[in-house]
Design a protein around this nucleic acid. Structure first.
Length: 364
RNA sequence: GGGAAGAUGCCCGAGUGGCCAAAGGGAACAGACUGUAAAUCUGUCGGGCCCCGCCCUACGAUGGUUCGAAUCCAUCUCUUCCCA
């Protein structure tokens, strides 16, 4: 995998990331499709929205249908009919999200899965194996994602475990790299010294790309900004930098300015299912009574299929009835909103006008 | 014409003397959601106020029994069902 930097504007970067399934223009947002499906969107709709990369999840696919099945179906990208670049998260986030269903030991994470309770033992090596079966262009190291508010000692211990696992993942992957890339994940929560230590250790392992993990797991927005601002520049400049799980449009803009290249977040799709649409003026809840007679599009001037087709009043009508299409219409819009935001950020960086443009792109 | 059951807050529906402004649903209104156990979850939901408490109005209508009634009694109105 090769990352080519095209331009910088301040600390922000625009680049090209070459993957086995095509070249991706950065900075970019990866649409989350955990179980090999972006909830509420067809492949054609994803293409029309300008999707570049789809993200799926190791844990979920290992539970169902099983990574071996995905491999036999031709790998994630082909299996889901996407045929474009993909990335798989390692299951590290499930250490956080499914805290009640797992046990962490130095060897790995033992899950009792959320579907039928059956055991899934995810070691660093196993996480890589599974991801090799799934076949995403980018794999992530297994990490331990602790809650941001955990005591410093816990965060430090957790970070060292993540480092040990990163080394094991690296070795497992390096033995048979194939065309897939493997990214390391820096931890350290809100402690700058730990973040620095983590970034430096991971850099020493020499990964094709680096992620900032352990963000947006219970901390305030101001802390997210502070730690991303601090950490991003510590990651190798010639490699892609990925901020995992973030976030709001404002978070993303701030992170791009800090030098982050890649993002993913469930926000556009999940919020859409809950009838919240993003606009450059901020999010709006389409179930609110104030939109009952609003014949305008979800967002003024938006070029998405939803905004070209239906009104706020209509989507509200569907939402009130719980109609499936209410969520679909908003999902199409939100995904396009996020992807257009990234396109605009990239264009601004290439034009060297990020500072002037950033403020206009979003004021929610 | 005779008999039976029933009328509860926007709707459905518990409640048969005090702990009832009244369970539980639904609707409505609002909020949350950041590497997806989430088409989910939470709050409000008769009115008013000096709103962790008080006042008013309320369980078909009117009158009564009682210290006290959505709950008991009488009459009336309406609804449903059964027999003619």
């Amino acid at each position: 995998m090769h990352f080519h930097l095209e331009a910088t504007d301040g600390r922000a970067r625009a680049g090209l990331l070459e993957t086995p399934h095509g070249t991706v223009k950065s900075p970019f947002f990866m649409v989350v499709g955990t179980a090999a499906s972006v909830k509420g969107m067809t492949i054609e709709q994803l293409h029309n929205a300008g999707t570049q990369v789809v993200l799926a999840n190791t844990y979920h696919l290992a539970v169902r249908p099983g990574s071996e099945e995905v491999r036999k179906r031709g790998g994630l990208s082909k299996f889901m009919g996407w045929n474009g670049p993909t990335l798989t998260d390692s299951g590290g986030f499930q250490v956080f999200a499914l805290a009640k269903k797992r046990t962490v030991t130095p060897e790995g994470v033992r899950f009792n899965n959320h579907i039928d309770g059956k055991e899934l033992f995810l070691t660093p090596e196993r996480a890589v194996e599974i991801q090799q079966d799934i076949g995403a262009d980018i794999m992530m190291c297994l990490d331990e994602c602790p809650p941001a508010k955990a005591p410093r000692d816990d965060i430090a211990t957790s970070m060292l475990l993540t480092h040990a696992w990163a080394k094991r993942c690296k070795e497992k992957w390096a033995a048979n790299p194939g065309g897939q890339a493997l990214f390391g994940i820096a931890q350290g929560a809100l402690f700058e010294d730990l973040r620095k230590e983590s970034a430096e250790y991971l850099a020493s392992l020499d990964f094709p790309g680096y992620a900032i993990g352990g963000v947006a797991v219970g901390e305030d927005t101001s802390d997210i900004r502070r730690i991303v601002d601090f950490t991003a520049p510590l990651l190798p400049a010639n490699k892609p930098r990925y901020l995992m799980g973030v976030g709001t449009p404002a978070d993303i803009i701030a992170a791009v300015r800090a030098g982050v290249d890649m993002f993913d977040c469930v926000m556009p799709t999940r919020h859409a299912r809950h009838y919240q649409a993003f606009t450059r003026e901020g999010p709006i809840n389409l179930k609110n009574a104030r939109y009952a007679e609003d014949d305008g599009p979800l967002e003024d001037g938006c070029d998405c299929e939803t905004c070209r087709s239906v009104s706020r009043a209509y989507v509200r009508h569907l939402a009130l009835l719980g109609e499936l299409m209410a969520s679909v219409w908003v999902t199409i819009h939100n995904v396009r909103f996020y992807l257009r935001l990234m396109e605009n950020l990239r264009a601004a960086i290439l034009a060297g006008r990020l500072e002037e443009v950033a403020a206009e792109l979003y004021h929610g």
